[in-house]
């Protein structure tokens, strides 16, 4: 039985109480998207400034939700700020792998190997504190909401 301390690590509560990069950016030029978790009502609003070279120069976040969704949003904003879009995409893949979410359905040793491969070479830093969420399956959606919203912005910007 995983304990609550596995889920609510100190660093998560710190990001929840003092979220980084809260605010808005003028759109345009900023890219923006809203994410909803229809099961529980968590909301995330993201603003991204991306320069001509494809670097994320600024990130702001809004929305409301549980500690896991809001801490994950805060950590995500800190992790992608200053990164290139390519690096941001690697972070999305690595973070989702950390949450045991893979492009194809994998189980057991294959899933572990795929997780290790996706995470290899990506500096997750504070984000690793969210690893405990995986033991609480219903909360995985809370943790991935901000990342799915980020992916949505990147997809929309590329198709535009």
């Amino acid at each position: 039985m995983p304990g609550l301390e596995d889920l609510y690590r100190e660093i998560i509560l710190d990001h929840y109480r003092s979220p980084r990069n809260r605010g808005e950016l003028p759109t345009p030029p900023a890219l923006s998207a809203e994410g909803f978790n229809p099961l529980c009502g968590d909301e995330v609003v993201l603003y991204l400034n991306v320069d001509a070279d494809g670097n994320v120069t600024d990130v702001k976040t809004g929305g409301q939700g549980c500690s896991i969704s809001q801490a994950s949003t805060s950590m995500m904003s800190a992790a992608v700020k200053g990164k290139s879009i390519t690096e941001a995409r690697q972070l999305i893949t690595a973070f989702k792998a950390l949450m045991s979410i893979h492009e194809s359905k994998l189980e057991g040793a294959d899933a572990t190997a795929a997780t290790e491969e996706a995470i290899a070479g990506v500096r997750l830093g504070d984000l690793e504190a969210l690893q405990g969420v995986v033991k609480f399956p219903v909360r995985i959606k809370c943790a991935t909401l901000a990342w799915n919203t980020l992916a949505q912005i990147l997809d929309e910007s590329e198709s535009a």
Binding site: L4, C66, S67, I68, F136, R139, C142
Partner: peptide, 12 residues
């Protein structure tokens, strides 16, 4: 405290 977090702790 968000309702999800309450519910999680109460489940303990």
């Amino acid at each position: 405290i968000h309702a999800h977090d309450i519910s999680q702790v109460l489940d303990e």
